[in-house]
């Protein structure tokens, strides 16, 4: 031990001085470098982790919103289709009703016309019969040169025509 001290010149005072040097280095590094930098590094880690989490949350929310959007859109489309369908049906019903009504009107008109035509025909037939009767009377009068009494005459003509 003695030789160790003398060979390497171990000196209590120098030893102590180096202890103090190290202590200074330790405190200075700890106070001015290590502590603030470690703190900042920790804070940065926390911030970055938080940002990443936030970004993830935002992405998730976006995806959810997209899904919601499609869902709403699909629903709206369905609704629109339903509305159009309903409108079509209503229109169809209205059309049918209109057609029915028109048909009835037309039928009514046609029935009226038929009756009118039949009446006209009858009347014209009657007129024609009378005219023909007149003509026949004239012709027969001329032919037989003899006037018959009105009653006989008429009876005769009626018989001829109805034959």
């Amino acid at each position: 031990m003695e030789s160790l001290v003398s060979i390497f010149h171990i000196d209590g005072k120098l030893f102590l001085a180096q202890l103090i040097n190290f202590a200074i280095i330790f405190f200075v590094l700890y106070k001015f470098a290590f502590k603030p930098i470690a703190k900042i590094m920790q804070e940065r880690t926390t911030t970055i982790e938080k940002s990443l989490d936030d970004a993830k949350a935002v992405a998730k929310k976006l995806a959810e919103t997209g899904l919601e959007q499609t869902r709403v859109l699909n629903e709206a489309k369905k609704d629109a289709l339903a509305i159009v369908e309903k409108a079509n049906q209503a229109a169809e019903v209205n059309k049918q009703k209109l057609i029915e009504k028109t048909k009835l009107e037309v039928a009514a008109i046609m029935a009226g016309e038929k009756v009118k035509i039949a009446q006209e025909k009858e009347e014209s037939l009657k007129e024609m019969k009378q005219e023909i009767a007149g003509l026949v009377i004239l012709a027969v009068g001329k032919v037989i040169k003899e006037k018959m009494t009105d009653d006989k005459d008429k009876k005769l003509i009626a018989e001829i025509i109805s034959r």
């Binding site: 200075v28 106070k31 001015f32 470098a33 930098i37 900042i40 940065r44 911030t47």
Partner: peptide, 15 residues
Amino acid sequence: LVLVLAWSLRGKIKS
């Protein structure tokens, strides 16, 4: 040297 470096770091620790 360490003192000077620590002094130069003083108040400059930023995020």
